Simulated scan of single mutants.
Amino acid sequence: MANPSKIKEGSVVYSLGELDGKKVEYDFAKVLIYLEAKGRMLFGKHFKIYEEDKSVLLRLCNYMVKDYDNCSKYGIDPDKGILLTGPVGCGKTSLMRLIRHIVPHRRPYELIPARNVAFGFNHIGFKIIEDYGNGRFYCFDDLGVEPMGRHFGKDCNVMGEIILSRYELFLSSKIPTHATTNLNAEELEKRYGKRVRSRMRQMFNLIAFDKNTKDKRT
C-alpha cells in the first residue's frame, strides 16, 4: 500500500492522518469519521459510534496503528493481543470486526465465535486444537460462554486448551491472539482454571467497556 494514511471505499477517499516520511501521524477525529462510515457499510445505516465508547475506541485504535507513545500512556503492550470485555450487547464484536480496517496494510485477524470452535471439536476432535494453534491471526468472539467439547465420550475445555496453544505461539513467534468476552476475571478463572487465567494475563491487554454500557441491540 502506497499511502496507509488514505483509505478508498468506492469512490470516496478517507484520510486517517498525515504521512510523515515513512510514519503515519493518525488523527483520531478523522479515524472516527472513517470508522463510522465503514461501520455503516458493514452493519447497516443504523450504525453509529457512541460518545461513551470513544475512550475504548481510542485505546483500540492506538493499539491497531501501533502508536507506541499512546500505548505506553494507556498501559497497552503493542506486542500482546486484545481482550475486549464488557456487558452483553455493548458492541464488542462490532468494534473488533471494524477496527482491523484502519490498517489494511497489516495482516488481518479472523473473527471466530468460540462456540463454533467447541462445536468443531465435537465433530473432529483434538485436531481442532492443532488447527487453531497455528500461525494465523484470530479473535475468538464470546469467550467463556461456549459449551464444553465432547468427542467420542471425552470431555474437553476446548478454548482453554487453545489458549494454552496460542500462549506457546505467542512466546515463540510473538503472534498475538485477540478475544471478546462478557466475563470478568473471576468468571474466566472459574471457567478455564488458574493456569489458563495466568497465561491470559501475559497474552492480553485488557480493554474494558464500562459495566453500565447500554445494550445497543435493544
Rank of each mutant, 00 (worst) to 15 (best):
G125H: 11
F126I: 10
F126A: 07
K127Q: 14
I128Y: 03
I129E: 02
I129W: 04
E130A: 14
D131K: 15
Y132E: 06
Y132C: 06
G133Q: 08
G133Y: 09
N134Q: 07
N134L: 13
G135I: 14
R136M: 12
R136V: 05
F137P: 09
F137W: 15
F137D: 15
F137C: 11
Y138G: 03
Y138P: 00
C139T: 02
C139Y: 06
C139H: 06
F140D: 05
F140V: 01
D142S: 13
L143H: 05
L143W: 02
V145K: 14
V145M: 11
V145R: 13
V145A: 15
E146S: 04
E146G: 07
E146M: 07
E146Q: 08
P147E: 04
P147R: 07
P147M: 02
M148W: 04
M148D: 08
M148N: 08
G149S: 07
R150D: 02
R150Y: 05
R150F: 01
H151N: 09
F152H: 13
F152S: 13
G153C: 09
G153E: 06
K154F: 06
K154A: 03
D155C: 00
D155W: 00
C156P: 02
C156A: 13
C156H: 04
N157K: 12
N157P: 06
N157D: 11
N157E: 10
V158N: 02
M159D: 11
M159P: 12
M159V: 05
G160I: 01
G160F: 00
G160S: 08
E161C: 06
E161F: 03
E161T: 07
I162T: 04
I162K: 03
I163W: 03
L164G: 08
L164M: 15
R166S: 14
R166T: 13
R166M: 13
R166L: 13
Y167L: 04
Y167H: 07
E168H: 01
E168Y: 00
L169P: 01
L169M: 15
L171I: 06
S172N: 11
S172I: 08
S173W: 09
S173M: 14
K174G: 00
K174D: 00
I175G: 07
P176M: 02
T177A: 15
H178G: 05
H178T: 10
A179F: 07
A179T: 06
A179V: 06
T180C: 02
T180E: 03
T181V: 12
T181R: 10
N182F: 07
N182K: 09
N182E: 12
N182M: 11
N184C: 04
A185W: 08
A185E: 14
E186H: 10
E187H: 11
L188S: 03
E189R: 14
K190Y: 15
K190V: 09
K190R: 15
R191E: 02
R191K: 09
R191I: 00
Y192H: 05
Y192N: 01
Y192G: 04
Y192C: 01
Y192Q: 00
G193H: 13
G193F: 11
K194D: 15
R195F: 11
V196T: 12
V196A: 14
R197Y: 14
R197G: 11
S198C: 07
